[in-house]
């Protein structure tokens, strides 16, 4: 079973969300990067753009496949992880740390409560 940190929230599409003050950092889970294989390209949204909960905000590509990235919650993109442009495999090496993808200013922080907690996400993977 892949690593599922207790302090994060999760989507059914295998993104994670971490609240830090008024901002939320978003990435993909250890399970997602494992399933994708070697990540070779991440298409990031523009800083200042808006994203909508459940809607696509970017693309992540492995050697073999193209996968959509879905926003865990709605808001404005305040930061993107530009380091992934040169080192996309950071998503494989450190999915919950340096492999983060975007930082959001949520328009409705209560949407966080609608996401899965670690236990529920673990169940989802188990029943996969």
């Amino acid at each position: 079973m892949s690593d599922i940190p207790k302090d994060l929230k999760y989507t059914k599409d295998h993104e994670w969300a971490r609240q830090a003050g008024s901002l939320v950092t978003v990435g993909v889970t250890a399970h997602a990067q494992e399933a994708l294989g070697d990540v070779v390209y991440v298409e990031l949204p523009k800083v200042g753009s808006s994203v909508t909960a459940g809607k696509q905000f970017g693309v992540i590509e492995s050697t073999k496949a193209v996968s959509e990235l879905y926003a865990p919650l709605s808001g404005k993109v305040v930061r993107v992880n530009d380091a992934l442009t040169d080192k996309p495999d950071t998503v494989n090496a450190d999915p919950y740390g340096n492999g983060w993808i975007i930082e959001l200013e949520p328009s409705d922080p209560k949407q966080l409560d609608e996401l899965l907690d670690a236990t529920a996400y673990g169940e989802l993977l188990k029943n996969g």
């Binding site: 294989g37 070697d38 070779v40 492995s62 050697t63 073999k64």
Partner: peptide, 11 residues
Amino acid sequence: PVQYTSVIGEH
């Protein structure tokens, strides 16, 4: 088999 460990590593 599509990969064992990593496509890039195998390549």
